[in-house]
Amino acid sequence: MKFIIIDYGAGNATNVKSALLKIGVSSMISSDAATWTNADALIFPGVGSFGAAMKNLGNKSEILKDLITKGKPFLGICLGMQLLMDASEESSGVQGLGIIPGKAKLFITSLPVPQMCWNKVKSLNSPLFDGLDEFYAYFVHSYYCDLSDSSYVSAKTEYGGITFASAFWRKNIYATQFHPEKSGVKGLQLLRNFITEVKK
C-alpha cells in the first residue's frame, strides 16, 4: 500500500516517516498532487503558520480537499488538523480547507503559550485509540480547534482552563492536535491503529 506524507515545504515530514518505519510501514514524502491522488492514504503533518501552509499548498489545496472529501483515508497532525477547518485566528483572511466547520483560536490563558508539553488526551472515541486509555501525548501549538459541530470531536484535552478538541474523526478523516510521532510508544500505537484502519 502507498502511504504518502504530504510535504508542503515546512512540516517535519521525516519524523513521521521515521515513526512509520519503526512500526514497519514504509512511506513516501511527496509534494506532488498526482502522487497524492494515487496514494492509499495521506498523512499531513504540520508545523509553521496556517497562512504559510495554505499559501504553500496553493492550487493543490483544492485537489487535496477533493481527495479527502471523496473518501481517501487521511490523518492530519497538528497544523494538519487545523487546516481542515474554515479559518484560523493566526492568519486572518486566509481560508482553510473548510472540511470541518470551525476555526482555530489563540489560547488565552495564564499558562505559557505555545502549549509545549505533554498533556492528557481524554474522552477517546475513534478507532485511532484502539487499545489506548487516557494517555499523555506531546503538544506544541498556540492555536486550538474550536468546532461548530462537536460530532467530529474524538478526543478532548484541557490546557489553562480551556477544553479543546485534541482529535477529530469522521469516516475516513482522522486528525490529532498532538504529535503521535513524538508521543513515545502510545503515539506509535496510534499510528499503527491508523494503518490498520486504512488496510481494512
Binding site: S18, A19, L21, Y138, V185, G187, L188
Partner: peptide, 8 residues
C-alpha cells in the same frame, strides 16, 4: 536519534 526515539 530521530530513527529510534519518538520524543522531541
Amino acid at each position: 536519534v530521530a530513527k529510534e526515539i519518538f520524543i522531541p
